[in-house]
Design a protein around this nucleic acid. Structure first.
Lengths: 187, 187
DNA sequence: GCGCTTGTATGGTGATCAGTCTATATATAG
DNA sequence: CTATATATAGACTGATCACCATACAAGCGC
C-alpha cells in the first residue's frame, strides 16, 4: 500500500484514539492531524466534507473492527458463556493496558451527536445494530435461539457500562461483573 | 429563596441539560447562559473559577440528585429485584419522555475529562462511588450482604449501558434487559 | 521533458471560544 | 438617605475553531 493512502488511515486512527480519550468536540482537527503525523495540507483533500466525514468514517471503520474483535473473542469458546468471559477479559486487558484512557470511540461521538447530527447518528446506530446482530448470530450458533436478542443486547450493555465505571475506578472488576451479568441470563 | 440565587441554580440546570444532550466540550458558556435565561454578567460572579467550576458543581449536584432518585426508586419495593425493576422503569420512562435526548450528565463529562482534568475526574469518581455505595447499602438492607457490592456495580453498569443503546435505538427495551441482567444475579 | 494527477504548504477567513475588565444597577443594612 | 455589598451589562482580549483558497511539490505515464 502506498505511503500516501496510509495518511488517510493514520488520520482515522488518530481521530479514533482522541475520540476515545476525550470525545468528539474536544478533539480538534489540528490536534487530530498533529497526532496522526500526516501533512496538514492533506486533511481536506482526503476528507472534503471535513471533520464530520472523518468522524463518520472513524465510527464505521472502528465499529467494524470492534465487531470483528467481538467475533474473534468467541473463537474457540465451547459455550456462549465461555465466549462472554473471553470477550470481557480481552477488552478489560486492552483497556488496562491503555492506562484506562482508551475505550469505545463510537460512544463518545454517539452521546455528543445523536440525534442532532444526522450523519453521525446513522453511523453510530449502524455500528450498534451490527454489534447486536453479530452477537445475536453467535448466540444462535451456541443454541440460544430464543434469547439471542436479549443476550446480544446484554453483552453490549454490559461492556458499555463496564467501560464507564472502569475508567472511574481504574479497575477491570466492572468487566467481570458485566460478564457475570450476561452469563447469569443463561440460567 | 431570592430570585438571584435561583440564577446560580438555573445555570447548573442548563449545564446539566446540555451536558446530557451533547457533552461538555460542545456546551459553550454562552449557550449555557442563554439557555438558562440568566444575565450574562452574572456567570463569572457566581462561578469565578469558570466553566470547570460550573461543571464540577453540576456533576456533584445532579449526581446527588440521581443518587436520591435511585434511593427513591427502591421505595416500597418488597424485594431488591422489585426495586431494580422500579428504578429501571422510572429511568426508562424519564428518558423516553425526554425524546431520548436526556441521559446521564455525569457520564459525558466523565468520558471527556477523566483522567486529564483533575477536578472533574474527582467529581465523577465521587459520584459513581456514591451511587455504588448507596445501592450497596440498599442491597444489604434486603439481605444481600454477600453480593451487595456486585449487585450495586451491576445496577450502575446496566443503567449506563442501557442509556447508550437506548439513545441509539430510541427504545426502552435496553433498560428492561439491564434490569433482568441485575435480577438474574440473585439466582 | 511535458502534461496531467495526486498530494501538500501555508496564509487566511469569519466565527466562536473562555475569560477579563470596567462601569453601572440593584439590594441591603444602618 | 447613604454607604456598602451584591449582581449585571457589555465591550473586549487572545486563542482557537473548522474550513477555504491558491500556489507549489511530487509522482507518473507517455
Amino acid at each position: 500500500m502506498p505511503e500516501k493512502s496510509n495518511h488517510r488511515l493514520k488520520l482515522i486512527r488518530s481521530a479514533s484514539k482522541l475520540f476515545q480519550h476525550q470525545g468528539y468536540s474536544a478533539s480538534g482537527v489540528s490536534q487530530i492531524i498533529s497526532e496522526s503525523g500526516t501533512p496538514r495540507g492533506s486533511f481536506y483533500y482526503y476528507f472534503p466534507e471535513g471533520k464530520e466525514q472523518l468522524a463518520d468514517e472513524t465510527v464505521r471503520l472502528t465499529g467494524e473492527e470492534i465487531r470483528t474483535m467481538l467475533e474473534g473473542g468467541f473463537a474457540g469458546a465451547k459455550t456462549f458463556a465461555d465466549g462472554v468471559d473471553q470477550v470481557a477479559s480481552m477488552i478489560a486487558d486492552w483497556f488496562e493496558k491503555s492506562g484506562w484512557q482508551a475505550g469505545c470511540p463510537i460512544t463518545t461521538v454517539h452521546l455528543e451527536k445523536t440525534p442532532q447530527n444526522t450523519v453521525l447518528t446513522k453511523a453510530s446506530q449502524h455500528v450498534f445494530t451490527s454489534w447486536v446482530e453479530t452477537v445475536q448470530k453467535i448466540a444462535r450458533q451456541y443454541g440460544h435461539d430464543k434469547q439471542s436478542s436479549e443476550l446480544a443486547q446484554a453483552l453490549i450493555i454490559g461492556l458499555e457500562g463496564a467501560w464507564v465505571l472502569s475508567r472511574a475506578s481504574k479497575s477491570k472488576a466492572p468487566f467481570y461483573v458485566a460478564a457475570k451479568m450476561v452469563k447469569m441470563l443463561l440460567k
